[in-house]
């Protein structure tokens, strides 16, 4: 009886039930075999804290701190204030002259910056701006984005509608391909000249180039989560 009890004690202390199976357990064993061991709460090796103290000293005063990149914020999803409250995001919103409400963010991009005359290919100069838009969409983990193209009043209505739709689609495709925005959350529309934000002509009937320039635009409406 006595020897049996001691055997049981030894088995408990050193057998598979024992939690002393933490640490660097590499032994060339197939990892799948390890799963049979009960290692739910592996004990941290006794020298781990000592090693950690040395490592911390070596890091110096900033303890190895690194700035959180925009990308990190985007990947993390930033659901609780990491991204959209960050200075970087707020700065970008300002740079894009975004209009923010409780539920949405609207970014208006000039058609003259995004596209060459009568074209719908994204100009290389516009890519940095679109990258920022992509960062904002990801930082807010937006569940829905509406991209709408608008034109001025020059030309046929039907042509303007088609051109504005193609431009909206170009922006969407660029965001998917280059900014990693999920295609499924974006919707595109082409409104042509039907929703001007400035008069295309002056009160005397003369042309208003500044007004028309404002109307040539792509609006990006980002829904907040």
């Amino acid at each position: 009886m006595k020897s049996l009890a001691w055997a049981a004690l030894l088995a408990f202390c050193f057998g598979p039930l024992c939690p002393l199976s933490g640490g660097r357990a590499h032994s060339g064993v197939d990892p799948a075999l390890q799963s049979g061991k009960n290692a739910e709460d592996p004990v941290i090796p006794a020298d781990a804290q000592e090693k950690a103290i040395l490592a911390l000293k070596a890091l110096g005063a900033n303890r190895g701190a690194r700035a959180i990149s925009f990308e990190t914020a985007g990947i993390l999803g930033v659901s609780k204030g990491v991204g959209f409250d960050s200075k970087q995001v707020q700065k970008t919103l300002k740079e894009l002259e975004a209009k923010e409400t409780k539920t949405t963010i609207q970014i208006d991009l000039s058609g003259d910056i995004l596209f060459d005359f009568d074209k719908w290919d994204i100009r290389p100069d516009a890519e940095a701006t679109l990258k920022k838009v992509g960062d904002i969409i990801k930082a807010y983990r937006s569940p829905g984005v509406l991209i709408s193209g608008h034109s001025d009043s020059k030309g046929e209505d039907d042509y303007n509608q088609k051109l504005s739709l193609k431009r909206a689609e170009s922006v969407r495709d660029w965001l998917v391909k280059n900014a990693g925005v999920e295609a499924g959350i974006m919707r595109t529309e082409g409104f042509g000249e039907t929703k001007p934000v400035a008069p295309n002509a002056n009160p005397d009937g003369s042309d208003n180039p500044a007004g028309r320039q404002k109307n040539r635009r792509v609006e990006i409406l980002i829904k907040k989560r």
Partner: peptide
């Protein structure tokens, strides 16, 4: 989150992360 900084795991003098269990 507040100060926008991140910190990776600590490494020992052999360059191994002080973490486990390591296969």
């Amino acid at each position: 989150e507040v100060n926008q900084k991140k910190y990776y795991g600590l490494k020992d003098t052999d360059g191994l992360f002080i973490a486990g269990p390591a296969y």
